[in-house]
């Protein structure tokens, strides 16, 4: 089984592995802490992070079929939280507030050189196409490898590399604007 199935156009496509929906109670205990930590990291705000975890698990409750077809529940949770964070960042009011608040202090990513760089990245996320913003979060925001990102997005590392390049190009264009 390949974890890096790729569609004919190079886009990311789900794996074909079927995994039974997990016990949601156990799922909460195992993955809510991870969801919370990532949300807090990405949003830079504990209260927003808790609300986001709430929203993610509420969504899972409404549509438990989201579990199916996933090879790793950890990568599934990464994807769900990232998507939710992006939605939140795109919210105009939250975005403005986040930008005013600045960045969280905790940073692990070796790719991230400075808080200023991440602040710029966060402000850009709301304007990026979703596929690029997602990759930007993983790569620039969390320091994940191409292989890691490929496993989360369920596509090839090569495709991730292309997306990372597009992110860089997008950022360069934004920075070039007056």
């Amino acid at each position: 089984m390949s974890l890096h199935a790729e569609g004919p156009a190079g886009v990311c496509t789900p794996h074909t592995v079927n995994m039974a929906a997990p016990d949601l109670d156990d799922f909460y205990r195992r993955y809510a802490p991870v969801a919370y930590r990532r949300a807090r990291h990405l949003l830079g705000n504990e209260d927003d992070a808790r609300e986001l975890v709430h929203d993610v698990f509420a969504s899972l409750l409404d549509r438990p079929e989201q579990f199916r077809g996933k090879s790793s529940l950890t990568t599934f949770m990464y994807s769900a939280v990232t998507h939710a964070c992006l939605n939140r960042l795109r919210n105009q009011r939250n975005r403005a507030r986040l930008l005013q608040q600045g960045m969280p202090e905790e940073r692990e990513s070796p790719q991230v050189r400075s808080a200023e760089a991440l602040a710029s990245l966060r402000s850009l996320l709301a304007r990026m196409p979703e596929d690029l913003a997602t990759v930007a979060i993983y790569y620039h925001g969390e320091g994940l490898t191409h292989d890691d990102i490929a496993r989360i997005l369920e596509c090839s590392p090569r495709h991730v590399g292309n997306l990372v390049a597009r992110v860089r190009h997008f950022i360069e264009r934004q920075e070039a604007q007056p």
């Binding site: 991870v34 529940l73 890691d148």
Partner: peptide, 21 residues
């Protein structure tokens, strides 16, 4: 401190969850 060989955040989380490939 970290080295280039260190596990990513995803790898850490998968390890804790027992889901390391």
């Amino acid at each position: 401190g970290p080295t280039p060989a260190c596990l990513s955040a995803l790898a850490i989380d998968e390890w804790n969850a027992g889901e390391t490939p």
